[in-house]
Amino acid sequence: MNTEKGASCVRVLVVDDEAAILRFLKTVLDSEEFCVYKAENGSLAIAAAAAVRPDLILLDLGLPDMDGLEVIRRIREWSKVPIIVLSVREREDDKVMALNTGADDYLTKPFGVGELLARIRAALRRALQSVPQPVYRIEDLEVDLVHRRVLSAGIEIQLTPTEYDLLRLLVTNAGKVLTHRQILKQIWGAGYVEQPHVLRVNISNLRRKVEKDSSRPRYILTEVGVGYRLKADFPENADKDKGGRSPL
């Protein structure tokens, strides 16, 4: 397999049965200095995940031997490696199911390369960073997790405890889609997972306080029918890492 970039390169396992997609992804990822490993079916993917110990997995759901969800489930039994699903399945139900099974992100085919690289970077960053960053900055928004303070353009914003918890959850998972169920379970507890309107009201309130124009939110993005995602704090297609060993 592709190991000539040395042991320190970021290893990405690409699982897809379409030769054209594999070729395209390898070309793109090679040029971004990733070490690319390929698997054409589910069982090969699980074996490779154990053998190669990749830093990230790009997984297609429609595999010839087993369903991609099953692959996620098997890998999640022993590994926390970030998994980004690339699939033609566009229904919200499919996305929610993949995310709840343990996928970190979900991209619908067809997708743009910029979008894919941004998602990969966000996922890698979350995975590599064991201790949460004390302060997050996204454009004008600043969240200080140590002092429980939120600033917008330097002015402090008053949040209710629930709103703060919500924002903190989004911030610590910046760039990643959190499903309604995941958020409800973490903030309100398992008893609330069937009451998404609680979440919607709080998101709406939070946006009113945090966003400049709450009718065109820039930070807290809605993934229709799936959940919410906080915008990652680095500009897309930022090439500052180009040539470096690590994309971060």
Partner: peptide, 10 residues
Amino acid sequence: EDCDVQDLIS
């Protein structure tokens, strides 16, 4: 589901 119309539009 109960939806925020503003969210819908955005």
